[in-house]
Nucleic acid binder design. Sequence first.
DNA 1: CTGAAAGCGCTTACAG
DNA 2: CTGAAAGCGCTTACAG
Lengths: 339, 339
Amino acid sequence: MKKISLNDIAKQLGVSKTLVSLVLNGKAKQHRISHEVCNKVTELAKELNYKPNQIAKGLRTGKTNTIGLIIADIANPFFGKLGREIEKEAANHGYRVIFCSSDENPANSQKQIEMLQQGQVDGFIIAPPAGSENQILSLKRNRTPFVLIDRNFPDIDTNYIVVDNIQAAFDATSHLINKGYKKIACITLNVHLNNMNQRVLGYKQALIENNIPVDEELIKMMPFTHEKDDIVEAVKQLEPGNKAKVEAVFFATSKLGIMGIETLHSLGLHIPDDIAVVSFDDPDAYKISQPPVSAIAQPLQEIGQESVKVLLDLMNDNQSETKKIVLKAKFIPRRSSGA
Amino acid sequence: MKKISLNDIAKQLGVSKTLVSLVLNGKAKQHRISHEVCNKVTELAKELNYKPNQIAKGLRTGKTNTIGLIIADIANPFFGKLGREIEKEAANHGYRVIFCSSDENPANSQKQIEMLQQGQVDGFIIAPPAGSENQILSLKRNRTPFVLIDRNFPDIDTNYIVVDNIQAAFDATSHLINKGYKKIACITLNVHLNNMNQRVLGYKQALIENNIPVDEELIKMMPFTHEKDDIVEAVKQLEPGNKAKVEAVFFATSKLGIMGIETLHSLGLHIPDDIAVVSFDDPDAYKISQPPVSAIAQPLQEIGQESVKVLLDLMNDNQSETKKIVLKAKFIPRRSSGA
DNA sequence: CTGAAAGCGCTTACAG
DNA sequence: CTGAAAGCGCTTACAG
């Protein structure tokens, strides 16, 4: 079954490709093409199950109706859910999306961006890894439409959709303080991403506002590629009885939280009696965990929808004013913090 | 910064496009192009940061180096992790992947396949929803390369990579029986997918082999779009004390399991004392759950790698013999079933 | 060793 | 109202 082309239809009907193209693209009226011809074309196209070749169309028009999405890891439920929202919103507008996982490695995102820039994609939605500033600047120079999500570079003027990380971390930490916890640890990633910095900042601000001294020893930075062992080590250092008694811990990502909670359990510690827990992000795991884990839920649907919308505006209007959108993340107290 | 093309290079060097194309595609030797010219071309290409337009290349060669992946839902951690493996293996071979979530709805997968068949993709990896047999047959008729994953249609001769669902379900159920449980419920999806049927079959076979009568009342079928309420209802019907005392439950998917366990907890039931639990698939949630959940882990990396390899073979060789690969899934006993 | 030309399947001025 | 022609950026016989 050979693919049929515009030409096939044109020949069978004894008309020109131009005509067929015009009709099939809904420009019949505008070009005052006769009703009769119009119908003939539409019918035969349907009969032959004609599907325009998007590659040819793309070459000609310079549009591919495809979005490149670069995130840290599609296997991470946070990005999985976010990716799904983006896919959904894109599909609503007739766009498909190519997924790329960078593993927070700028060399990877570089390769992925270069690969997709070779005419494969009309624009990008990117969660840029630390150290990818030059890539983002290069996209700006090329005038490639793109929008950042999850994190952004404060020094670079770009479109972005993020959440208020400071506020969210502040809320979660304040909640712990209100519950009477004072020795509160923070486990975060040691990557230079502004969202991570902000989470630590919010944590510190809550302490300071409540006259609790910030103890840098209680802030543990994990490499992004952290393995179980790293977490075990960090958690052990925080273990109650070891030096100062730690009463609670704030995990800055759900991946850290999941591994950390697993470790706490395996050390025989009880949550929240021995140590209270709150975490950024709200994967399913936190709902079935016993006790359920207090978490900061990001508005994934809104982030997904907005990022696609902003990108589409950009690709169509080529507007110059950058859109900087900061959404609220919601803290959900559960039993892991005595709620 | 305008994109630069083959022509730009050719003009600047005063040679033909043919020459440039040949050199850049590594066919210089084969066409005995002089070393000198060869170097000039390579250097200028690098200097101008020339990137061939893949769309143009695709139109000419009929190859896009893109794979279409159709799964139920990328937000589901099982498919998220599987998708990541596929993305990785594809990237290793220079392929990108377009992700589509069908939500197990054949109308969706139909639309997605049609969309991607318009020249956008060289082949498909598909987890076909129930009722999509005609789409698969149509792909066969078109001679579109594709491979099925996670489930297949026994009546259609296709390439596929699946796990031995019967064996895995049998193992998990046998484990429960060995632990002394007799009244074992099964919560599954009411979709007509052979992998789901096989999971129930394995469950039944284990019962029969141990002389435990199969009680159809203990097999609950949920719609794929199940909400919390459906699970609550089903679990309540199984609640110990309600009619026959149910001692254990086998969840046929992790999505069912996660919701089910959440429900058991909220009903105040203790796992495994009040009711033991085993589940197909092994999301992170099961590891931090208290108690950790006994689970059937599928070999995601192998499924991902094999599916890409089989597809690539197909696209290159157009070989006729179908590859049917059945991998083993591994049961991991944890404390939720008294392990 | 190198180049002119055709063509992949479209869209879009342009002309009539 | 309709068609011939150019061209998007490549690759690949073909010819010399």
